[in-house]
Simulated scan of single mutants.
Amino acid sequence: MQAAQCGGLAQLLVPPARVRLRVGYQETEAFDAARKAMAATEVNERWQRDMAGFFEQPEVADEAMVPLVEVFHLA
């Protein structure tokens, strides 16, 4: 993640009793460059394979990622 200039990686899960929602996010200043750099690593291939069962989308998680729009940020 550091080599791809990403930080703040997290996964969030809403309890199943409410809705089934899992959200992952990462912080980066250069989204496309970071995604490309991550995709070029061997560890990313392992991560995608090992984590595939936790996601319902048919595509590879890296290909499904989209930038999120920040509504507000309290610091």
Rank of each mutant, 00 (worst) to 15 (best):
M65D: 00
V66T: 10
A4D: 08
K36D: 08
P16Q: 03
V43A: 11
M51C: 00
R22H: 06
A3I: 00
V19P: 00
V69T: 13
G8L: 04
A4M: 10
A33P: 01
V69R: 12
A4Q: 09
D32P: 02
F55T: 02
L74D: 10
A10P: 00
R20E: 14
A64P: 01
Q57A: 07
P67C: 04
R49T: 05
M65S: 01
L13S: 11
G24P: 00
Q2F: 09
L74T: 08
R22K: 09
A34G: 08
F54Q: 01
A4C: 10
P15T: 06
C6K: 06
M1G: 15
P15K: 06
V19N: 06
V69Q: 15
T28E: 00
V14S: 06
V69F: 12
W47A: 02
E45D: 14
V71T: 12
E29Y: 08
Q57S: 11
V69M: 13
H73G: 11
E70G: 13
A52S: 04
A17F: 12
T41D: 10
E56I: 11
A33I: 07
A39E: 04
A61N: 10
A34F: 03
T41H: 11
V66R: 08
A33M: 07
A37N: 05
P58I: 00
N44I: 00
A4I: 05
G24M: 02
A4T: 09
L68I: 10
P15D: 02
V19F: 03
P16W: 05
L12N: 11
E27V: 15
G24V: 04
A39N: 05
G8T: 03
R22N: 04
V43G: 10
E63V: 05
G24S: 10
V19M: 03
V71Q: 12
M51E: 04
A3P: 07
C6D: 08
A37G: 07
K36V: 10
Q11L: 12
E56H: 13
V23F: 08
T41C: 06
E42P: 04
F72R: 13
W47E: 03
Q5L: 11
E42Y: 01
A3Y: 09
G24R: 02
F54I: 02
P67K: 07
F54Y: 13
E27A: 14
A3E: 15
P67F: 01
G7M: 09
P16G: 01
L21G: 02
A4G: 09
V69D: 13
Q48Y: 03
L13E: 14
P16I: 00
P58T: 12
A61G: 06
E63T: 06
A64H: 07
V43D: 14
A61T: 05
V19D: 05
Q2D: 14
Q57I: 06
A40D: 03
W47I: 01
P16L: 01
A10K: 08
F54C: 07
A3K: 15
Q5K: 15
Q26C: 14
Y25H: 11
A34W: 03
A40C: 07
R49A: 08
G8K: 08
N44P: 00
F31D: 01
F54V: 02
P16S: 05
E27C: 13
V60A: 15
R22F: 02
Q2R: 15
Q11M: 13
